[in-house]
Design a protein around this nucleic acid. Structure first.
Lengths: 240, 240
DNA sequence: TGATTGCTGTCGCCTTGACGACACAAAAAT
DNA sequence: ATTTTTGTGTCGTCAAGGCGACAGCAATCA
């Protein structure tokens, strides 16, 4: 369980910083911004590549950087005093994170850790603030991104309070499986538990029950959705 | 319980709109903005006064307005399919809300309802967008406000998942009591339950137990903190 | 002035789900 | 080829807390 997590600290704390400055197209923050513009905006942007398990920042870190995930996967999570983990956000390629650290917020509570080998652009706080002041449209997009994140967390919050684990699990599966193949790989039951707020055993049990009902198909570190509609019914409906 | 809530619908759906345009000083969004400037920024801003129980917007509402609470109290909350209520945010005088509705977000999930007689400034979407584009500093402050809200919700989310009701209740009391007098009035046990995610009976029981331990003093619609440190210990510590 | 309504106290039942424990398989390390 | 580590399946136990029910008690309403 999560208590055994403090192991990735064996991973490097910060990673090799080769220079690079392009490939921000596709970042949700910069949708519709001319690529030529971007090149000139950040000459001193860095592109890091980190192995899975790298911790990018912690709650103690000032973290005066904006991150854009280019490739790989990053998880933002919180830890309770007793070491329990809750994943607050999954970062997919093209997404921005570390926004909070830029603003007045010294305390921002989250850890950021790569769960796959990743390449990540970083922009310094000053550059970002400058950019946001020069380009109100980008500031607005940023506001939109943070607002969207807020809405998602609120929904998970309500669900955590009022919906049983099965519902949250169904929701999780629908959200995180590849929409084309219906597959979800490289995830452990414990990882799911840390995201929906349940212990590993409960996840295992409900997953089994779902398999027996023909909703999904499970293997080691692998889940595939068979009956999407069935899952949707669970996720939607039976909230007591 | 919350299921009995659909009663404030007896209250007016929208309220008397007298004109007004000043008194935005004190609004967190406009800290440090010259008052003269504000006057010119919004000539067509409206000041509404609404009785307690007025619903300002619902999830279905487009809500293309920014609200600034001048006086009174507003609650943002969500309802589940089965009618359970969860308060996501308490708006105090000087605070801004309705930000999400302005952006691309058509779905914003929250109801906004006055819980006291209130006076509220509204600014149209177009005016706000114009303002944010002209004044990047205000856009940044907005970003900061939304980010702050995000952080708070994340904390409540983690707490909802991992902390027992007593901890959440202690936390609630410490947060929502007047820091000077240590008092909290005009709140029902059910209202507290809808905020921390617990049923009324549980709130009543734990409140009683706290009173017996000399931590608080309770009366009808009235709570007063006696032993702040004791509550802090509960809120901090015993998370299983 | 009786009657309806809203807030609080108190019980008991019963389900959900956490937690510890162990067993087994596959993968990774030695 | 062993040993160790990871991921998963499966139990039994147990406490937290939801839910229904009911009973005072104040405040408001008719």
């Amino acid at each position: 369980m999560s208590r055994s997590r403090p192991k990735p600290s064996s991973s490097k704390r910060i990673c090799k910083p080769p220079k690079a400055r392009s490939s921000l197209y596709g970042a949700d923050l910069f949708q519709g911004i001319k690529s030529a513009e971007l090149g000139t905006l950040f000459e001193d942007m860095e592109l890091q590549t980190c192995p899975a398990g790298t911790i990018l920042f912690t709650p103690e870190d000032p973290c005066e950087t904006l991150y854009i995930l280019r490739e790989g996967r990053v998880e933002l999570y919180r830890l309770t005093a007793s070491g329990k983990r809750l994943v607050t956000r999954q970062i997919l390629p093209g997404s921005v994170f570390g926004v909070m650290g830029l603003l007045g917020q010294t305390i921002q509570g989250n850890f950021a850790e790569t769960t796959e080998d990743s390449s990540i652009c970083t922009i310094t706080r000053d550059d970002v603030l400058l950019l946001l002041k020069q380009r109100p449209d980008i500031a607005l997009r940023m506001l939109e991104i943070v607002g969207n994140r807020l809405r998602l967390i609120e929904e998970r919050f309500v669900e955590a309070v009022y919906s049983p684990v099965e519902v949250r699990l169904a929701h999780f599966l629908l959200t995180y499986t590849d929409s084309a193949s219906g597959e979800l790989v490289n995830i452990t039951h414990e990882g799911i538990g840390d995201t929906i707020g349940a212990v590993r055993q409960t996840v295992t049990e409900i997953l089994d029950s779902m398999q027996k009902r023909g909703l999904i198909e499970t293997g080691p570190k692998h889940i595939r959705i068979i009956d999407r509609h069935g899952l949707e019914a669970i996720a939607r409906g039976s909230e007591s």
